[in-house]
Nucleic acid binder design. Structure first.
Length: 584
RNA sequence: GCCCCAAUGGCGCAGUGGAUAGCGCGUUUGGUUGCGGACCAAAAGGUCGGGAGUUCGAAUCUCUCUUGGGGCACCA
């Protein structure tokens, strides 16, 4: 990357200056190379001279001069000092050469190697398998998928995983709900459970079972039937979830069953690690994880927290792992947190990912400290897990907030939204803001404004370039002589000079920096900002510079430039999981 | 009460300790005998929530206050 190259050259210049006696000896500190806010100042700038004033005992401006004198830039850029700043302007020749570099990279343009093959798991989605994929979960999967794309482009080996919460109370209620609808559909007077799932899809599941298996589940013990129907229901729902995900271009490498943590005995194998450290505490008939091994105090039943778990500042996490009060069937599962323990062990130790990223909604924010605590207690480096907390979306319809709940059956599915506004616009909306910012998803507004969605502006630029390239092909068909002239010229002798040409190349080069930014900050919205900015820069070029019908070497060079632009737009859209249409 | 997140033009949001804080929408005024007008240009609009601190330098880091969102169950 250009920034890294400049950094290296600056460091070398400082060291050369030190050897030559222009600068006193000192260790070169970490410094950054940035884009100046004012474009007229240059393409890149470094304020390292400011940092060096103290160790060098010299005025910053003088340090900057001496670094500039020793810089070996090999025609890459011109350097200028402005006070303590070193300002770099990439040379037209260097920028011209970059177009060829982009075209040579092809579909791999934008890839960088900061990941160095390290393995990362991105776990996203993981919504309860008790109902269809909601638009609320849509934000989760779009964030996770885009991050996975970015990490992959950044050189990491990435696995995309969905954690299927197929154990626990909610699943039991779900199984009871399916059973009730099933029995009712067969004419049996079966009461619907109080905590049951109200959605119509439960009826659909029940009917499908009847079509396939008739009434055989009525003939087995009720508890067995409920469990079996629950399992069938989960399978059916997960099939639907996969189909919904596919519509927005999302595919997971693995669907990991929570239940499997118990069926495989993994949970029972991990527990002794905590027991041996004295971190498992018995209290009130239940088993607890206590971060410092302290006994549970003052826990008086449901609803009351253990006293020593209250102060998070004191960093003592106390969480129940297994209790007869949690679930009637201890074989099914202890608690959610118990699963977390086995699951993080599975990720980091059994499957030895270098890093595990969890994409969690803000309702799970309180779970962060306890997962950190137990990871530490297992003797694992907590920096290997990253808990990303994103804010929820607020759904508006008819000017009113839509409250959603899977249990009430009042849900807006991701499919509903995709039907209304399309997959690309849906992804763009869900991606367009920092994960720390809530998104107000106004269905009426987005539908009405879907034509004005920024994604179309970006795709329009891509379609427009495609149109130019089509036209060029048509013309070469119509005019053999012109085609011969055009094809002979590769634009090799042409050096880009128009400000709009150079600005466009600079913008193309930013893609690598944006990939780095998304992959290190784990903030996918940078892609949307970049995509719009790239489209805007292209529009300015399009306004100022004709591609077709200019002198052959100019046309040829600009053809290459727009091809590189198209490649960059297409890659950016691909990283965001969106299509790059040839026509609109 | 405790913990996490946020507060930036009218609205919605970007912003990597660095120079004159940007983008979209909206508003106002303009632009095409040009490769796609789903376009483009210009203008107006800012004490970056208040206060203190760290630093050569703070929208950015620390503390504090205010306001808003979320979380604090033997639920998931």
């Amino acid at each position: 990357m250009i920034r890294e190259q400049l950094k290296r050259r600056i460091t070398q210049a400082i060291q050369v200056a030190q050897v030559a006696g222009d600068l006193p000896p000192f260790d070169v500190p970490a410094f950054t190379v940035d884009h100046p806010r004012q474009a007229q100042l240059g393409d890149y700038s470094a304020s390292v001279a400011m940092q060096l004033a103290r160790p060098a005992h010299m005025p910053p401006a003088q340090i900057a001069e001496r670094i500039a004198d020793r810089l070996a830039l090999d025609g890459m850029a011109a350097v200028d000092t402005a006070g303590a700043y070193l300002n770099f302007r990439l040379s037209p020749q260097y920028l011209t050469d970059q177009v060829d570099r982009i075209l040579a990279a092809g579909a791999a343009w934008g890839n960088i190697d900061i990941g160095a093959g390290k393995s990362v798991q991105v776990e996203h989605g993981s919504a309860n398998p008790t109902g269809p994929l909601t638009v609320a979960s849509g934000r989760n999967v779009v964030i996770g998928d885009t991050l996975a794309n970015a990490l992959s482009a950044a050189g990491y080996t990435v696995q995309r995983e969905w954690y299927v919460n197929d154990a626990g109370n909610q699943i039991r209620h779900f199984g009871e709900s399916v059973y009730a609808r099933y029995a009712q559909a067969l004419g049996v007077d079966e009461p619907f459970p109080e905590d049951g799932y109200q959605g119509d899809y439960i009826n659909d599941i029940a009917k499908a079972v009847i079509d396939k298996d008739g009434d055989r589940y009525l003939k087995m013990p009720r508890a067995d039937a409920r469990r079996a129907l629950g399992k069938l229901g989960i399978d059916s729902i997960m099939d639907g979830v996969r189909a919904s995900l596919a519509r927005v271009g999302i595919h997971h490498d693995n669907f990991f069953s929570e239940r499997s943590l118990y069926e495989s005995g993994r949970f029972e194998r991990v527990l002794p690690l905590l027991r041996d450290k004295g971190l498992l505490v018995e209290y009130d008939g239940a088993l607890w994880f206590s971060e410092d091994g302290s006994p549970i105090r003052n826990s008086e039943g449901r609803g009351e927290k253990p006293e020593n778990a209250v102060k998070k500042n004191e960093a003592v996490q106390v969480v129940v792992i297994r209790s007869p009060k949690v679930i009637a069937e201890p074989s099914e599962r202890p608690t959610y947190f118990a699963s977390d323990i086995a699951y993080v062990w599975d990720k980091l130790v059994e499957r030895h990912f270098d890093r595990a990223i969890y994409v969690w909604g803000e309702d799970h924010q309180g779970d962060v400290p306890r997962l950190m605590a137990v990871t530490r207690a297992l003797g694992l480096d907590t920096s290997r897990i990253v808990l990303l907390i994103y804010r929820f979306i607020t759904l508006m319809r008819n000017g009113q907030e839509v409250r959603m709940g899977k249990r009430s059956g009042n849900i807006i599915t991701l499919d509903d939204v995709v039907d209304e506004v399309g997959a690309d616009a849906t992804r763009f909306v869900l991606l367009s803001r920092s994960i720390d910012t809530k998104i107000v998803f106004d269905l009426d507004l987005v539908k009405k404004q879907s034509d004005e969605n920024p994604v179309y502006y970006v795709q329009y630029a891509h379609a427009r370039i495609s149109s130019i390239l089509r036209k060029a092909r048509e013309e070469s068909g119509d005019n053999k002589a012109g085609a011969a002239r055009q094809s002979q010229s590769t634009g090799a002798g042409y050096q880009f000079a128009h400000p709009s040409e150079l600005a466009l190349i600079r913008k193309l080069l930013e893609l690598e920096e944006v990939v780095e930014q998304v992959a290190t900050q784990l903030q996918p919205h940078h892609f949307t900002t970049y995509a719009q900015s790239l489209a805007t820069t292209f529009s300015a070029f399009y306004r100022d510079c004709r591609v077709l019908g200019e002198a052959p070497e100019v046309s040829a060079a600009r053809m290459k430039l727009v091809q590189a632009t198209r490649a960059t737009l297409a890659r950016t859209l691909a990283l965001m999981g969106m299509s790059a249409p040839e026509r609109m």
